[in-house]
């Protein structure tokens, strides 16, 4: 409770530079970390903004001192060097102690978020994510539904050298896939992640999730999507020549629509499974 409270105070102390809350996605928003649609992404965003404000304050002090020195102690203005000013225990203690306190404050702020991220208890469903060179494979555990998700056809055409189709003509160029990962809103989704060949990383900024997919080993995490929508991401760990061409698209649906989608996928998935197990 205390850290959250402190963070709120710190943020409220900075009304001048904080952005109007609830502003429509402006140019600036697109250039900043997304607030995202999970508690994890919001924690990351809050910490990010807090760190930026702290850095701006320190920056004003430090750069201000430097600029002041550069303006006022110029030889061309007749400044004479005070060659005795070479040591001051008091000043040095102060500028060791103040950063230490600021850092302790920042570190303290991260603890609840860290504990929150690791809490995979009581999940409502589990998906299994596997990285391949160069596509993703998703499996809805216990549902018999699984599929590969690779770069969309139009992006794949436009990304070739000397392609007739230009990237600007493709909607969501490089951020569209042939099969999207459909997930329900409001459910605690646990994911198990691994890789088939080399290390990949599954990153969707608006979910606040980035996790390495390591061949031979499984890792897990969780997220709960709050709002329906389409959320796009990319592989974040260099995985070979088409590393830039294995995007992730998550479509979050209301629970009923998701259930309908899953039910529709089940028989098809089973038929496909029986006829062609790789």
């Amino acid at each position: 409770m205390i850290p959250r409270h402190a963070r709120a105070i710190a943020l409220s102390l900075l009304p001048v530079i904080s952005l109007p809350a609830g502003a429509a996605p402006s140019g600036w928003r697109q250039l900043n970390l997304p607030v995202g649609v999970t508690s994890i992404s919001r924690d990351a965003y809050d910490l990010h903004m807090l760190a930026i404000y702290v850095c701006i304050l320190i920056g004003i002090a430090v750069f201000g001192a430097m600029i002041y020195a550069m303006i006022n102690f110029r030889k061309s203005k007749g400044a004479v060097a005070d060659r005795t000013l070479t040591h001051s225990t008091k000043a040095e203690v102060i500028w060791t102690a103040i950063p230490a306190f600021i850092l302790i404050f920042l570190a303290w702020q991260t603890v609840p978020a860290l504990i929150h991220i690791e809490d995979t208890r009581d999940s409502d469903m589990t998906i299994r994510i596997t990285g391949y060179q160069w596509k993703w494979h998703y499996e809805y555990m216990g549902e018999g539904v699984s599929f590969y998700s690779a770069l969309g056809e139009r992006s794949n055409t436009a990304r070739q050298r000397n392609a007739a189709l230009r990237p600007a003509e493709v909607d969501h160029y490089l951020l569209e896939v042939d099969e999207v990962l459909v997930l329900p809103v409001g459910a605690k989704i646990r994911y198990l992640i691994s890789a088939n060949d080399v290390i990949h990383a599954w990153w969707v900024p608006e979910l606040g999730i980035k996790r390495d997919a390591i061949p031979g080993f499984i890792n897990e995490g969780w997220f709960r999507i709050d709002q329906p929508g389409t959320y796009r991401g990319q592989c974040a760990e260099l995985c070979g020549k088409d590393h830039g061409f294995m995007p992730i698209v998550v479509e979050a649906l209301p629970p009923e629509e998701f259930a309908a989608w899953l039910a529709a996928r089940r028989p098809a998935a089973q038929a496909a499974l029986a006829s062609s197990q790789p």
Partner: peptide, 25 residues
């Protein structure tokens, strides 16, 4: 984060070196 402390000391010391100096550029 600890690394920021001695690094900060360096930055501050450089600034203090310029302080009450006779700077040319």
């Amino acid at each position: 984060m600890l690394i920021a402390i001695p690094t900060g000391v360096k930055i501050f010391n450089w600034t203090a070196t310029m302080w009450r100096g006779s700077l040319s550029f």
